[in-house]
Write a protein that binds this DNA or RNA. Sequence first.
RNA 1: GGGGGAGUUCCCGAGUGGCCAAAGGGGACCGGCUGUAAACCGGUUGGCUCCGCCUUCGGAGGUUCGAAUCCUCCCUCCCCCA
Length: 396
Amino acid sequence: MANDRPSNWNAVDLLPAGGLEGKAARGTPLRVKLGIDPTAPDIHLGHTVALGTLAAFQEAGHAAVLIIGDYTARIGDPSGRSGERPVLSADELDRNARSYAEQAFKILDRDRTEVRHNSEWLAKLDFAELLRLTRTMTVARMLKRDDFANRMAAQEPISVTELLYPLVQGYDSVAVQADVELGGTDQLYNLLAGRDVMQAYGLEPQVALTLPILVGTDGTERMSKSRGNYIGVAEPPSDQFGKVMSIPDSATADYWRLCLRRDPPELEPMQAKLALAAAIVTRYHGEPAAAQAEAHFTRVVRERGTPEDVPVLEVAADTVHLPEVLKRQFGESTSHWRRLIEQGSVRVNGVPATELNLPAERLSDALVQAGRRRFVRLRLGTGALEPRSRPDAAGC
RNA sequence: GGGGGAGUUCCCGAGUGGCCAAAGGGGACCGGCUGUAAACCGGUUGGCUCCGCCUUCGGAGGUUCGAAUCCUCCCUCCCCCA
């Protein structure tokens, strides 16, 4: 049936040829593995490409095995890396692991997903077993892969631990007896190494299915938290909407296919992107939230209006130092806000601010806008702006 | 174990005694324009009680009127030979 066709899986590679059909012919549900290392607290749309395919296998009646790489994260996957990954603390990894699984269920069917943490078997792996594992691979084969070859050429460090990564990932496949493993195209090497490891352990090698890499909001680099070009599945609706709108037009079609597993609609670029943003927000927050996010976008970004909900900040009755107020509300430094005020991009009640201090009489209920999208309403109160204001009773 | 090289502001990367808060690029932010938080063009990009002051160039000392730049020791990393 149509569901079993690779086109439905967004697959780039499906190796070996015919392998999947062969396994499917057994008639029993396949065990489809996807591993995610909890290196950051949130899942973003980049992760959802493979998760979506895993969900598609689920729908087709196969078994989804989601591996939270709480142990492999300690090694650091070298795939696509130009340098070593920073190692997170055990606490952080635990926290991340929890939120990962939770967020993954926005895509997967919770009741039909087998979630495993690879610490379950890797923590018990003893040295003899590790040695057995390392004999399945040669250094020459390892160093042939692009990531390492490039780093060698650039005289950059490669740790022995990193070399171990593909083997350990392969060991995961042994542990869960995977029939198929999913991963981005950058995972091809690891997925194939898994085949060798399985064979060495007397198992039928898994089928490797690779998926396209989703570009981030910049439209060129792969989506990743560390590059700051990501759209998180747990982000607030209006942020998701805005971020989707910020992707280049050229990326919209891919987003439709990879994030939503749908064909892009035949619309003008702007309309297609608006529809995409709405569809993505709907998926993760529901339709009402999507409608609100779109309204917010239209109002604030397209029409340059004021949002419906503006946060209120209490300030003391003394003259208010604008940079300090902005720093309080939005972070950054007072120097940063000074610069923006100089550039005329901070408005008080719609008028560009020319002075740094705001006299008390102009302060009451003042709407302060910093740049296009940041707003705060000031309200007189006891909220003393340290350190320049003295403790006074006048405020009450 | 021996020899060589490197650590600069968010990132990459110039800078080898004062003209350095430190070139250039990337990123980010702001502005213009626009169909968007796209594209394109322009500006900004250490901090502060901000036209002056303070803190930065792996760390700690030292030389000097003055050091990212010179000296000493230490830490980290890379390469080559073994």
